[in-house]
Design a protein around this nucleic acid. Structure first.
Length: 286
DNA sequence: AGTCAGGCAACGC
DNA sequence: GCGTTGCCTGAC
């Protein structure tokens, strides 16, 4: 194989590839060694697999030159982290503790369809299950690609899933989620739900409403899709882990809807970014 | 063997 | 409105 033209991805502030991939935003990157470099590989949307590795000592992130732009955007290395942090409340000791615990977490910018679809399949599932479901869907219905002699599969397109039967999806161990995924794929494939319009929608509430109009998509899944798949940092997904940290560390014993309103006010326009630090912190320490 | 997960819709009050 | 229940599956 011809030598790869590696480029270092510029970024400001902290970045931990490892923590970012382990923070529950995404479930499909796999370890891979490429030309002796230990990193991760995975498909981004319909594209061929991308590869990224991080030098554990210097923190420098490297990728094949052809991947630089999409990888940088996907991993949020183009984000103005200082401005995001500056938008947080200055006197929140819990958030500061969480940020110190995992300073290198970035909020990813995944393609919206695969992010939405993956979270539809995530309900009442552990991480290992979510990964297994996503892998099965990819292997059966995604476009195959080779990288370093290993196969990688893109996440299946909505059009592809829309043409399947519910039984075919159930056969991927989706259980009752099969109906939700199929209906979502059909809505997207038929243009009933325009994901590009959802991304472009200035109002967070309207964007959420459109996603929540899908069967099987409630507030939590809609907010995950918007935060991790559309760069909407004001979206604040609340699951049992967030309820836990808000209850035990912020003394907020409220229902999810009330917690959302409180969080938007307390954490500000990048509340979802704060959520990601708190979420990881909560899972690892509470 | 039963319980229970990183939710949601459909009911029942 | 608010609380409860069923839903598939696999790991513990």
């Amino acid at each position: 194989m011809a030598g790869i033209d590696w480029v270092e991805l510029p970024y400001a502030g902290a970045f931990s590839l490892r923590d970012t991939l382990k923070s529950g935003q995404v479930f499909h990157w796999e370890p891979l060694s490429l030309e002796g470099r230990e990193g991760v590989a995975g498909c981004i949307g319909d594209g061929p697999p991308a590869f990224l590795y991080q030098d554990t000592l210097s923190g420098a992130a490297w990728t094949p030159a052809g991947d630089a732009e999409r990888v940088r955007r996907y991993f949020g290395l183009d984000q103005d982290l200082a401005a995001i942090h500056a938008s947080f409340p200055g006197d929140d000791r819990v958030l500061q503790e969480a940020m110190a615990f995992c300073p290198g977490i970035r909020v990813l910018r995944q393609p919206l369809w695969e992010c939405l679809a993956t979270f539809i399949t995530s309900s009442m599932k552990r991480v290992s299950h979510i990964r297994a479901i996503a892998l099965t869907l990819r292997q059966r219905y995604g476009a195959p690609h080779l990288l370093a002699g290993r196969p990688f599969y893109a996440y299946p397109r909505a059009e592809t899933l829309a043409s399947l039967s519910e039984a075919a999806l159930r056969d991927c161990a989706l259980g009752y989620r099969a109906k939700s995924l199929l209906l979502a794929a059909q809505a997207v494939a038929e243009g009933e739900l325009d994901l590009a319009a959802v991304e472009a929608e200035p109002s967070l509430d309207l964007a959420r409403e459109r996603l929540m109009s899908l069967y099987g998509v409630g507030a939590k899944i809609a907010d995950c899709a918007l935060l991790f798949g559309a760069g909407r940092w004001e979206a604040f997904p609340i699951d049992v882990w967030m309820e836990r940290v808000l209850r035990e560390r912020y003394r907020k014993r409220l229902k999810a809807e009330k917690l959302r309103a409180w969080a938007a006010k307390h954490f500000g326009p990048c509340a979802g970014y704060a959520q990601q630090y708190l979420f990881h912190f909560s899972r690892k320490t509470l």
